[in-house]
Design a protein around this nucleic acid. Sequence first.
DNA 1: GACTCATTCTTGAAAGTTGAACTATGTGGG
DNA 2: CCCACATAGTTCAACTTTCAAGAATGAGTC
Lengths: 171, 171
Amino acid sequence: MNTASTGGGGREPRWLTEDEQRVWRAYLHATTLLEDHLDRQLQRDAGMPHIYYGLLVQLSQAPRRRKRMTELAIDAKITRSRLSHAIARLEKNGWVRREDCPSDKRGQNAVLTDDGFKILERSAPGHVEAVRQAMFDRLTPEQVGKLGEIMKIMAEGLQPQDSGADLPWLR
Amino acid sequence: MNTASTGGGGREPRWLTEDEQRVWRAYLHATTLLEDHLDRQLQRDAGMPHIYYGLLVQLSQAPRRRKRMTELAIDAKITRSRLSHAIARLEKNGWVRREDCPSDKRGQNAVLTDDGFKILERSAPGHVEAVRQAMFDRLTPEQVGKLGEIMKIMAEGLQPQDSGADLPWLR
DNA sequence: GACTCATTCTTGAAAGTTGAACTATGTGGG
DNA sequence: CCCACATAGTTCAACTTTCAAGAATGAGTC
């Protein structure tokens, strides 16, 4: 980390300009509202929060509809701990089951069940519609393009850098 | 709501195109990483999650550094319940205190304490720096402008619409 | 004033998240 | 084989969020 100055020990901070503040607030505003909106939509229509839905989607797209826990955690950008809890809950719903990894006795695969797949089929249309209404229906193609570029750049800058300690790399 | 079709009863859903999917994934990816990053940064440097920090900021900018609970909840885009818990926690830290609203006996003001203000002064530089590094340092001025427009549009479309039931308008 | 309904805020329990500690297995060297 | 250390996943406790009540005050109507 080169954020030694982050603690407040540095010189005059580079405050945001008026314009930047406006953009930042708009960003926070929009992202919060959208996340809340999707969480509610999916909680209502699929009985789970957005992140859990995302896990099922990942599994549905994986070969044989299964994935190693760690891999799933990385792809979904969550900690293994969080994933453990999440899979436990989804397992209770009968939408996922665990299976021992044949090649590594430490490992577990999360497997999407048929019930899980059905839930996905059933709720996917409503979810896509919600995403469309919130984003793609409201933006011009040009804006969508720009948004894609911008988000890609931001994501790159935040990629779980190197490491240093135990396993902060995993987030 | 005109989302009658959301439940899955409608006709063929308007799936996302390949490009749209890419943008959507990039959006989710970037926003998740950034939120996590800021949450950690603030938890580490200020001892509270991002949203709590936002509450202190709001208070610091309000006249006399105080605000009615409901108003604060709306501005911060959270439920009053969540705010109640949050303020309780911040109060325990000594960064905020409650005071009865003089004009409405039902009301409460959340007041930023001197300690709260100090925490803010102390952690603001690091926080701005984190935001800069994640967003403004990586985007061109043109991109920042576009991002602002885009986020504004999205936020407008998600504004706590009307209502219907109890108080879902408040989110 | 009494009724009714709206508004403000809090509370409690259930659900979800976090970070650290823990178990078990894999890996590379002596 | 034995050791030290890395990896995979889970678990626990503390914390945060959500949802559904609930207590109190305000406002409008008769």
